[in-house]
Amino acid sequence: MALITCNNTAFAYEGNIAVSGLSFSVNAGDYLCIVGENGSGKSKLIKGLLRLKAPQSGTVLMGEGLKANQIGYLPQQTAAQKDFPASVYEVVLSGRLSARGIRPFYTKHDKQIVAENIKRLGIEKLQHRCYRELSGGQQQRVLLARALCATQKLLLLDEPVAGLDPIVTQELYRLIEQINKDSGLTVIMVSHDIASAVNYASHILHLQGEQVFFGTTDEYAKSKIAARFLGG
């Protein structure tokens, strides 16, 4: 049984179908990149996978005991966060919230997991710094650590490299690849950057208001639609 299976699924926005004909499955350990232009339905699909939005038709099935609140989500940053007074440690710790449920306070176990993930992403030196004083790349690392605290199975990244310079972008891609390979964590990433997607991902899902391609990266590279977008 796959981790996530969509079966002829469609999502709507205010009554209009935003994206339809979604039929794909994600297995444990996969690295799926969702590509497509603005308005192609990527963010609707993300909301659907997080169970924040019910599908208009079809189904989204979760297998292997995955629950929607066990997805490590890295959302796009909001304007309010840019001047938010919080320490890196506080931000990462909030990733354990889903494990808390109704109980109000964090436990020693939570703090241990936070310490592990802070170490894993190499941000120990930053942990007492203020979040708003970090560079864009450092902030993304912090949010990635927070996402890792929330999951043991699946990371869902919404355009993680938006607004970063090329060097930091490559670093972040490598970091995500490392997390995927070393820990066997499944990664689903939304991206505009098709060239990098082809470099790093194992599977590609291409959207254009509907599903136009789903398959392995090798198949994608040979397909007509990729040729059009990769300019080759």
Partner: peptide
């Protein structure tokens, strides 16, 4: 802790079931 999460990042909090 919940108020912090909702204040800092509502989308993330929502996604983790808050």
């Amino acid at each position: 802790n919940k108020i912090f999460a909702v204040t800092f990042d509502e989308n993330f909090a929502k996604a983790t079931g808050v």
